[in-house]
Amino acid sequence: MSKLAPKGDYLFAMPSYGYTKMANPRMGETLRAARNRFANLVGMDTGAWLLAKAGLLDGLRATIHWDEITSFMETFPEVHVVEDRYVVEKGTATCGGASTAFELTLELIRQEHSPMFALEIAALFMHGDKLEMQNPLERWSTDTLVRSATTLMRRTIEVPLSIPGLASKLRTNQRTLEKRFQNEMNMTPLSVYKGIRLREARRLVELSTLSIAEIAARCGYQNTSAMIRAFRQEFGVPPGHCRHHD
């Protein structure tokens, strides 16, 4: 009995060195066949070369490791080559190297799941410098107002600002802030603020020995019961279920 060909949401190609030898007719046939079984093909580092050689990037925007940009442009004129750190097109994605592979992965997580989940993953891996670790959204959000707002949210977890107050500190108005958050994250500023506070609460529940009441206070909840209700609504379980016991 023959084995079923694998299929899935994503297929990642990352050949690194020796990619020109790998870009042979057999590889092209394999990748073109995979196009019918995988919703998305991703070329990491020099993986874009394999996809382009197979004709899978024709007419699309793509990037590659910057050392190979010129050669890539000359070899595949039918590909719209850009010097971006990563490029996401419908059904394909490409990036330039090691650090950009992580940035691309965050973007795919953001698109497949949510900006809040991508924000958590970035923080978990301590992605970026000190400021970006406080607000990993800055690595891939293109809206400067949203970036500034989420940074301010993270700095005011214990004593949360009202949304009008937040807007005022950012020298804008609530309506503009709401619109920009909706466009960038498909969420309201209040929902993002709440999500940031509750994720900090979960982190403290999992990693500290602070009481639930202390955690609630540190995350801007004057009423412990209110934090527990919000926590359950956000994560599906009460805080106690996330606490690690020795």
Rank of each mutant, 00 (worst) to 15 (best):
S2Q: 13
S2A: 13
P6C: 07
Y10W: 07
S16W: 02
Y17N: 11
G18I: 13
Y19Q: 09
K21I: 08
M27K: 02
G28L: 00
E29G: 03
E29W: 00
R32K: 12
N36A: 13
R37I: 06
F38C: 08
F38R: 07
L41E: 04
D45F: 01
T46I: 02
A54N: 01
G55M: 05
L57S: 09
D67Q: 14
E74F: 01
P77A: 03
E78W: 00
V82C: 08
E83I: 03
V87S: 07
K90R: 12
C95D: 15
G96E: 02
G97Y: 00
E103Q: 09
E103C: 03
T105G: 09
L106C: 05
L106S: 01
E107I: 00
E107N: 09
Q111T: 02
H113V: 04
L124A: 12
L124I: 11
M126T: 12
M133F: 02
M133I: 15
P136R: 05
S141M: 04
S141C: 15
D143C: 11
L145N: 06
R147A: 09
R155A: 10
R155L: 13
V159A: 13
L166I: 12
L170E: 05
T176S: 13
E178A: 11
R180Q: 14
R180Y: 04
F181P: 14
M187F: 06
M187R: 15
T188V: 01
Y193E: 15
K194C: 04
G195W: 04
R202H: 04
R202I: 06
R203G: 07
V205D: 02
A213G: 08
A217E: 15
R229F: 03
R232Y: 02
F235T: 13
G236E: 04
P238R: 09
G240V: 05
H241M: 09
R243W: 02
